[in-house]
Every structure is written in structure tokens, then in C-alpha cells.
Amino acid sequence: MEQQAQPPLRVGMVGYAFMGAAHSQGWRTAGRVFDLPRQPVLAVICGRDPAAVSAAADRYGWADTETDWRTLVARDDIDLVDICTPGDSHAEIALAALAAGKHVLCEKPLANTVEEAETMARAAETAYARDQLAMVGFNYRRVPATSLARRMIADGRLGTLRHVRVTCLQEWLVDPEFPLTWRLRREQAGSGSLGDLGAHIVDLAQYLAGERLAGVSALTETFVRERPLTDGTEGRRTGAVTVDDAALFTGRFASGALASFEATRYATGRKNALRLELNGERGSLAFDLERLNELWFHDAGQPAAEAGFRRILVTEPDHPYLDAWWPPGHGLGYEHTFVHQARDLVHAIAEGRRPEPSFADGLQMQRVLAAVEESAAKNSVHTPTSD
């Protein structure tokens, strides 16, 4: 007897800016590349501006629009709610969607506070008993090279882990005349570079290491504390920047391995320089997002005369995700991480298994971010005294 095909997965997305465009690409493409158990359908996109959300629907391929997320959540023709909004609305939308019986995908970081994240994680656990899944969108896990690195580390290729170093360097705030957007307001964004960039690199470090941070020590700084407002009023008006511009912190994993993290929006000349290196007793792995089809591996077991980092071109069909894409040597890009994210979530829903990263993982991340902020608030830079 043939197995009955599962119904399509009807997606409703809240938000249509940068992440909305990226998630749309993922949902639109996943079922055309991968053989999925349920076909994603771009059912409804939601945004407050009717003209803008209608234009986004036409551009990205959504069938219908709403201007109130509450209406979207209440619709009975939606199976999954995808949240691509600023952090201050994540909790409210996710909780309502779970209560309405929907699956949920929520962009990172999960929430603006630990308390919100705790409530969301509890709601997701209750919903899981009703066969509803909730996942956090950490897309850099879905780069084939980072997934391959995770596989190699899990297979023991590095042996006992000793050091992890991760940076995410951007320059988009270097100009002091850049306006005061929502990302620079704590009440909307929760934090600055820490939550926006730091959440990515901490999640990636923990994912690759296969363990969690046990403690952190941090410094943060806001370099430009007033920025121009964009409310259209006459005359020059500024508002206070209430988040960090840069975060620098060290950490220790539960195993004792050490880690260092740097997240900044003030690295002049850097666009999105996410780089990591993991050193173990038997070898090392290095990755650079700007060369995302490559992974660098050093095998300490090689003779000294032949040892050194060697490049792995991650385009082979037995590399993660790549059996469905192009012939070897034909690389992928940033947008494909969202295709892989959609693929993984569809499979988890169809199989009824917990997705990764879950809301519980998002809560743990929120606690790390809170610990970094707490440490930075206590730390101060001391000037060495002269003899």
C-alpha cells in the first residue's frame, strides 16, 4: 500500500525586511531543491504598511497579505508562523502562535530578556506535547562547511578541545551620522552587537564544540552615544543609543576548553567577517564566512615536514546538504543557509521530532547574553600605575 502524502505546510510570515526576504527565499526554494515530506506554501505575509507588505508579497511570492499579526495567527489556513520582526515582539507573537496551535520559527535572538525566553521555552515545551514544534533561526549552522566541521569534531578528529576563537566584524555604524534605527534602541532590540552578532557566534561555537559555555567575562562599549533621529521633524535632533556597539568576552566551556568572542559594528573595512578556529589535541579547524565553501583542517598526526592547514572544498555530494545541489566545485552562498533551515524544519515537523535549535536552546543563549552583559557591567578597564 502506498503511503499517503502529507499535506502542504502553509507558512505565515510576520515581517518583510532583510530577514523576511531571506526567509522567503528559503521557503520558496526548499521544496524545489530537496525532496521534502511536506511542501512549503507561502500563504500569508504580514506587515503594518499595506502598500509595502503588498509589494513584498508580489516580490517574494506570497499569496496573501495581512497588516495585523494577530489576524494572521488566528487564520485557520496557516500551519506555521515565521517571526522576522524586531526582538521586542518575538515573545508576544510566538506565544500567541503556539496558543493558536501553530508551529513557530523565530529569528534569533529568541527574546529581549531571559524572562521572556523562559516563558517562550515553557510554552514551546507544552506545545510539543500537542505535536507543535518551535525553532530558533540560527542560520549559520546550516552552512555546509560548518555542518561538516560539526561532523568532524563529533567524530573525534580534533580530539579533546582546547581553544575556540570566534569573531564577527562589521562596519555599518562607523559613520556617526548613521541614524538611530530600531537596532540601536534597547527597548526594541534588547542589545546591540551582542544580541545581533554575538548570538550568532556563541551559538556557532557551542554547536561546533558540542557543549555549552559554563562562564564568561566581558567588556562592552558604546562608541557613539547620540545619533540623528529619523522622524522627519525640522531641525537637527538626536536620540540616545541605548545598546552596545561592540562586545569582547572570554568564556570557558564545561569541559574546560577556553573561548574568546568579538562582536562589533565598528570594524572599519569589514562587512560581515565571521571567522572561527577550534584547536584540539589532535588537530584544528578554521572557517571564514567570506569563503563559506571552504573549511581548513590541520591534522596534528601528520609528519612535521608535511603538516599544515589544508583546504577542504565543501562542495561534494556527501558533504552536508550538497547532494541536492550542483556538481562538485560549484559553490553555494549566504541565501542557501535559509533554504537548508527551511528543509530541516519541514523534516522535523513531518517526523514529529524536536527541531534544532529549539526554544530551550534559545533560552540557554539568552542566559549567555545576559551573563555577558552582567559581567561587562561589573568590569572596568584599569589603568596601570607607574613605578
Score class of each variant (00 low, 15 high):
residue 3 Q to F: 07
residue 10 R to M: 08
residue 16 Y to G: 03
residue 16 Y to L: 10
residue 20 G to Q: 03
residue 21 A to L: 11
residue 24 S to Q: 07
residue 25 Q to K: 12
residue 26 G to H: 06
residue 27 W to D: 03
residue 27 W to Q: 02
residue 33 V to S: 09
residue 46 C to T: 07
residue 47 G to S: 04
residue 49 D to N: 15
residue 54 S to P: 05
residue 59 R to L: 14
residue 62 W to P: 04
residue 67 T to E: 00
residue 68 D to N: 14
residue 68 D to F: 06
residue 69 W to C: 01
residue 71 T to Q: 12
residue 73 V to A: 11
residue 75 R to E: 06
residue 77 D to Q: 06
residue 81 V to N: 03
residue 84 C to A: 15
residue 86 P to D: 04
residue 89 S to N: 05
residue 89 S to A: 13
residue 90 H to K: 08
residue 92 E to L: 07
residue 94 A to Q: 14
residue 97 A to N: 02
residue 98 L to N: 01
residue 99 A to M: 02
residue 100 A to S: 13
residue 100 A to Q: 12
residue 101 G to W: 01
residue 106 C to W: 03
residue 106 C to V: 15
residue 114 V to L: 10
residue 117 A to I: 09
residue 117 A to R: 01
residue 124 A to N: 06
residue 127 A to C: 10
residue 143 V to D: 03
residue 145 A to L: 05
residue 149 A to E: 01
residue 153 I to E: 00
residue 153 I to G: 00
residue 155 D to W: 05
residue 157 R to I: 11
residue 160 T to D: 13
residue 162 R to I: 10
residue 164 V to N: 00
residue 165 R to Y: 01
residue 169 L to M: 13
residue 171 E to C: 08
residue 176 P to Q: 11
residue 187 E to L: 09
residue 189 A to P: 08
residue 194 L to F: 13
residue 197 L to R: 05
residue 198 G to T: 09
residue 198 G to M: 03
residue 200 H to R: 11
residue 204 L to Y: 03
residue 204 L to D: 02
residue 206 Q to M: 09
residue 207 Y to W: 13
residue 210 G to D: 07
residue 211 E to Y: 05
residue 211 E to W: 01
residue 215 G to V: 08
residue 217 S to R: 15
residue 217 S to T: 14
residue 218 A to W: 02
residue 221 E to W: 09
residue 221 E to M: 05
residue 226 E to F: 02
residue 228 P to V: 05
residue 231 D to C: 02
residue 232 G to F: 11
residue 233 T to Q: 14
residue 236 R to E: 12
residue 236 R to F: 12
residue 245 D to S: 14
residue 253 F to Y: 07
residue 253 F to C: 09
residue 262 E to Y: 09
residue 264 T to Y: 10
residue 265 R to K: 12
residue 271 K to A: 11
residue 273 A to H: 14
residue 280 G to M: 06
residue 281 E to V: 14
residue 287 F to C: 04
residue 290 E to F: 11
residue 291 R to F: 12
residue 292 L to W: 05
residue 295 L to W: 00
residue 298 H to T: 00
residue 300 A to Y: 10
residue 306 E to C: 09
residue 308 G to E: 04
residue 310 R to N: 04
residue 310 R to F: 00
residue 311 R to P: 04
residue 312 I to H: 08
residue 315 T to S: 15
residue 318 D to G: 15
residue 318 D to L: 12
residue 327 P to E: 12
residue 328 P to M: 07
residue 328 P to I: 07
residue 329 G to Q: 02
residue 332 L to Q: 09
residue 336 H to G: 00
residue 336 H to T: 15
residue 337 T to Y: 02
residue 339 V to L: 10
residue 339 V to M: 11
residue 340 H to D: 12
residue 346 V to Q: 02
residue 348 A to C: 08
residue 354 R to K: 11
residue 355 P to T: 02
residue 367 R to N: 04
residue 369 L to A: 03
residue 371 A to M: 05
residue 374 E to N: 10
residue 376 A to T: 03
residue 376 A to S: 08
residue 376 A to R: 00
residue 377 A to M: 06
residue 380 S to A: 10
residue 380 S to N: 06
residue 381 V to T: 14
residue 383 T to Q: 13
residue 385 T to G: 14
residue 385 T to Q: 13
